[in-house]
């Protein structure tokens, strides 16, 4: 595709989105009735009264899971070029490449096993 066509398409897409969004906001501003109140603006929670603020202190387990996610996210990013390269390699050299990636994953599997043993993956168990 020509780079000019990409430009035209993106301009049309952006304008389309902005115009539709602007129209809906404008129509709502013109015809809507704005009458806020404390009860009206409250969070709807199955008809119950909300008891506390939404920003509470979270458990550290969430943070542990986030860090674990990032570690395996980074691992995935580093395995992506490997998987891409695999298609272009000749059959003879593929074994060596597989070994290299297996060594990479095996070291991280040790960490996963450690996390499992320490109970970091089990949500209900405190890490011991």
């Amino acid at each position: 595709m020509e780079i000019g066509q990409i430009g035209i398409i993106s301009v049309v897409a952006i304008l389309n989105g902005l115009v539709l969004l602007g129209l809906s906001i404008a129509i709502q501003r013109i015809f809507g009735i704005y009458n806020p109140g404390t009860v009206k603006n409250d969070t709807y929670e199955c008809g119950m009264k909300s008891e506390m603020e939404s920003q509470v202190q979270f458990d550290i387990k969430y943070y542990l899971f986030a860090i674990l996610f990032i570690i395996f996210d980074v691992e995935f990013v580093f395995l992506m070029p490997w998987a891409n390269l695999f298609n272009f390699m000749e059959a003879g050299t593929r074994g060596f490449i597989i070994m290299e990636a297996f060594a990479f994953v095996a070291i991280l599997l040790v960490g996963l096993f450690y996390a499992y043993k320490k109970g970091a993956i089990d949500w209900n168990q405190e890490p011991a």
């Binding site: 542990l64 060594a103 990479f104 040790v110 960490g111």
Partner: peptide, 14 residues
Amino acid sequence: LISILLLVVLVGVI
């Protein structure tokens, strides 16, 4: 070595 680094991070976090 990257995988060793990631392993160290994992153990440290736990």
